[in-house]
């Protein structure tokens, strides 16, 4: 694995506030890395430090193995797509896409070819003569993408690229960005607060909170094994309970089984009272209060059952106030650090 860029103990303070706290992160060449986390956790600040728009308070930014901490943005050769797209209003679409090539003194004919190629790649080959303001939001974003790609950047940086699009377009663009990344072989860093987007798009995802990395890894490694409660909650886990022998564990709602009756006991079975039931077609979601403490303390749990697999006895027990036993396979429980 080659490293395209690296944060080495990078911090950024704004006055007394620490927006990014000693970030160590390697960006793998040719992969799509997402920075995922709630609003305000330092994703944009990190990306802008990589691009050279914000100076780190401490640490080093390495690009292509060389220290770029003090290099201005124009010396970094990165392609950035801004949340506002930032298309130049006084230039045509082709003028926008060719801007970086002109600065690199690419001869006119080759420039035209590469502009056309970049616009083709984002599916806007026919719109080169338009002004940006004559385009829809989705088209403007594609132009911004083409402009960043046309310079053949060392990294492509995307800050919440899908958040200004409507829901349908957003899902479509996830695939488009993956396709463009595969076709160009570009190294991509994408910032998002949407865990579904990160899971679907990433080769490598980095979950951040309060300026720190909470956990990182490939989506299929990370999702089944969140390291701590924050990551688990952020990835959509809802069930958290403390077991006497294992400490804090989490388990996904669809991995719980609910049986009628009050059998209790056992490491991975607890008795519970049904709080409410929601039928969602195939899925039946059951909210439960599990009796976990000796003094009758309860913990809320959610189980997701398959409606067509329920027996008549199950159905009889599933009403608010019904007593049930909730269990899970030990290997489906994920121990959390806290």
């Amino acid at each position: 694995m080659t490293t395209a860029a690296e944060f080495v103990a990078v911090s950024r303070h704004f006055g007394d506030f620490t927006a990014v706290d000693s970030l160590d992160l390697a960006i793998r060449e040719g992969a799509l890395t997402t920075l995922l986390g709630p609003s305000g956790c330092g994703k944009t600040t990190s990306l802008r430090m990589l691009a050279g728009y914000i100076e780190p308070s401490a640490g080093k930014i390495m690009i292509g193995g060389k220290d770029h901490t003090d290099a201005p943005p124009e010396k970094r050769d990165l392609g950035m797509v801004f949340q506002s797209y930032a298309l130049f209003p006084h230039m045509t679409v082709a003028g926008n896409v060719g801007f970086g090539l002109k600065l690199r003194k690419v001869p006119r004919a080759e420039r035209a070819r590469r502009v056309a190629e970049a616009l083709e790649l984002v599916g806007l080959g026919h719109l080169g003569d338009r002004r940006p303001k004559a385009l829809s939001g989705g088209q403007q974003q594609r132009v911004a993408l083409a402009r960043a790609i046309a310079i053949r950047p060392r990294l492509l940086l995307l800050d919440e690229p899908l958040s200004n699009l409507d829901a349908r377009l957003r899902v479509q663009m996830r695939g488009e960005i993956r396709r463009i990344q595969a076709e160009t072989g570009l190294t991509v860093v994408l910032v998002t607060h949407d865990q579904e987007e990160a899971l679907e798009m990433s080769d490598h995802m980095v979950v951040m909170n309060a300026g720190r990395v909470m956990q990182q890894g490939a989506p299929d490694e990370l999702f089944p094994a969140p390291a701590n409660r924050f990551v688990a909650e952020f990835l959509g886990y809802e069930n958290f309970l403390t077991l006497p022998e294992r400490g804090l564990v989490t388990v996904r709602p669809e991995l719980l089984t609910v049986a009628p009756g009050d059998v209790g006991g056992g490491e991975t079975a607890v008795s519970a009272t049904v709080r409410s039931i929601a039928y969602r077609g195939v899925e039946v979601r059951v909210a439960l209060d599990a009796t976990t403490g000796a003094g009758g303390a309860t913990t809320p749990l959610v189980a997701s059952l398959r409606g067509d697999a329920l027996t008549p006895e199950d159905r009889a027990a599933l009403h608010p106030g019904g007593r049930v036993t909730v269990s899970a396979r030990p290997d489906h429980l994920v121990s959390l650090a806290g």
Binding site: P72, P73, S84, A86, F99, R104
Partner: peptide
């Protein structure tokens, strides 16, 4: 939009340019 100037810098333009 301040990002316009940032975008130009990112594409390789000096501050004067």
């Amino acid at each position: 939009d301040p990002a316009l100037e940032e975008a130009a810098r990112g594409l390789g333009a000096s501050p004067l340019r």
